[in-house]
């Protein structure tokens, strides 16, 4: 048996360095990463990378920073498995292996000029943060921006300091609701769908972008359609198990689609008939 190096292998790893970390909650940690040689990741908001922990494995992780930051990118990771658990032990100065970016992100060129209704449930804020910050960095290219966030408890809120800044901005309408709140919580309590009736929008010029746990999509999309947002103006980002990121390994297949190459961002009108999607 011969062994040959494949220079153009799609399994080749790009080396990166952890520049800074921040424990966000007891379960989520934020990593700021710079690729070797000062190279930019050059991703689109909504794309993901495969993170390597050599000896443990790889896991698909959404990029949560805007591509307008060219010197570094950020990953916000919940420790739920072996790879993400190991990743949580990384600190500034440690090296990290990256493949990607992979997948189709949010269609920025299509969104430009339109109003945006961004609906994030739980960890859904992570991929959406790349879009939201991209929109803020290019704010005049977009119309009105509504951002709705739903979390289980106050302790589950990610990027709390940034959310406070969003609340102060005059060019974004931001609201947050909790499933369960302590008595001192002054904001909304209830499921994220309870925020939607209060949003005033022009449906024909609004794109709704929804990311959250599987159960959330059905309920939120029902409300969006009731608000007369056209099906083709509803975007979702789906989560699946992935091993290769290249439409081969089969783990992320959703009927006709591969979540890794056809998604993770999908247009609702393309997948509404796909029963396994949501």
């Amino acid at each position: 048996m011969e062994k040959t190096v494949i220079n153009d292998s799609n399994y080749r790893i790009r080396k990166g360095k952890v520049i800074r970390t921040r424990q966000m909650t007891p379960h989520e940690k934020l990593f700021e990463i710079a690729l070797d040689g000062g190279r930019s990741l050059d991703h689109e908001p909504g794309q993901f990378v495969m993170v390597s922990m050599f000896g443990v494995g790889e896991a698909p992780i959404s990029v949560c920073s805007s591509p307008t930051n060219r010197g570094y990118f950020e990953l916000c990771v919940r420790a739920v498995g072996r790879v993400t658990g190991t990743m949580h032990r990384l600190e500034a100065g440690d090296e990290i292996g990256i493949r990607g970016p992979f997948g189709k992100g949010f269609p920025i060129r299509v969104l430009e000029g339109n109003d945006l209704l961004i609906v994030a449930g739980g960890l859904g804020i992570v991929p959406l943060r790349s879009l939201i910050n991209f929109v803020f960095d290019n704010r005049r290219d977009f119309g009105k921006v509504h951002t709705l966030l739903g979390c289980k408890t106050e302790g589950d809120i990610l990027f709390g300091d940034e959310l406070e800044r969003w609340m102060k901005r005059i060019d974004v309408h931001y609201e947050c609701t909790l499933d369960k709140a302590a008595p001192e919580w002054a904001g909304h309590v209830g499921l994220i769908t309870t925020l939607l009736p209060g949003v005033h929008l022009e449906p024909e010029r609004t794109f709704a972008i929804v990311v959250g746990p599987p159960i959330m999509f059905r309920f939120v999309i029902k409300e969006l359609l009731a608000k007369k947002i056209p099906e083709s103006q509803i975007l979702v980002s789906l989560e699946r198990h992935m091993k290769c990121g290249m439409g081969k390994c089969g783990h992320c297949q959703i009927q006709d689609y591969y979540c890794c190459t056809d998604g993770p961002v999908f247009n609702y009108s393309d997948i509404k008939h796909i029963k396994e999607a949501m």
Binding site: V5, S9, R12, S52
Partner: peptide, 21 residues
Amino acid sequence: ETLLEFNVSKGLESTPVVEHE
């Protein structure tokens, strides 16, 4: 089949490979 060989003793070093005959 092996896709990648790596060494973590001095930083992360890895080489994509193919085994063939």
